[in-house]
């Protein structure tokens, strides 16, 4: 049984993010597999191919689960805090009170830009909070950022 917290509807990230995630992971996988193939290729020892092969299998599993993993990401704006969830095998829920947000970043990588998505990153005084919402449509992301900054301002507490 997976964890879930009783709350309003989760807002999902854009389905287009599946493409971004897939392409990003695929490129990374190709680089890693190519790099680990070098020893086998150079030495011509057959069983060294086991390394890139096993890595490739792991990546195939990761890639096949990507659509579900993206669907598992969600966030909701509650009255006083933002809750973010992610993860399929390793689930993680984080609640950040608005007043604790120190700044909100919007990042757009080349793949994100190609499909018109943005990534929103929240920074608190704790380095471990690590709340990053990927795959938001660019306009939504900016609107959300402005809203969150306003909320944070109205609930500002001391550090």
């Amino acid at each position: 049984m997976r964890l879930d917290i009783a709350a309003a509807e989760w807002r999902r990230v854009s389905p287009k993010y599946v493409v971004v995630d897939l392409v990003g992971t695929l490129i990374f996988a190709l680089v890693v597999v190519a790099a680990t193939s070098v020893p086998a290729f150079v030495t011509r020892i057959v069983y060294l191919w086991a390394i890139p092969a096993s890595i490739a299998i792991v990546f195939i599993v990761v890639l096949s689960l990507t659509p579900r993993r993206v669907r598992a990401m969600g966030y909701q704006l509650r009255d006083d805090d933002l809750v973010f969830r992610k993860g399929l095998m390793f689930q993680r829920f984080v609640a950040v009170p608005y007043g604790r947000m120190q700044l909100v970043d919007i990042n757009r990588g080349p793949l994100d830009r190609a499909v018109g998505l943005s990534e929103l990153k929240f920074v608190t005084a704790a380095a471990t909070s690590g709340v990053t919402i990927p795959g938001l449509p660019a306009a939504d992301a900016e609107e959300l950022r402005d809203k969150l900054v306003a909320l944070a301002e109205s609930r500002r507490a001391g550090l």
Binding site: V94, A95, T128
Partner: peptide, 28 residues
């Protein structure tokens, strides 16, 4: 009042045992 955020997590092993973990994020 000083806590920055709170996280709830569960991996495959914890899930099998119907357990979960809690982590509170504070300044380092």
């Amino acid at each position: 009042a000083r806590m920055q955020s709170v996280a709830l997590y569960q991996g495959p092993l914890l899930r099998r045992l119907r357990l979960a973990g809690i982590r509170m994020h504070t300044v380092a």
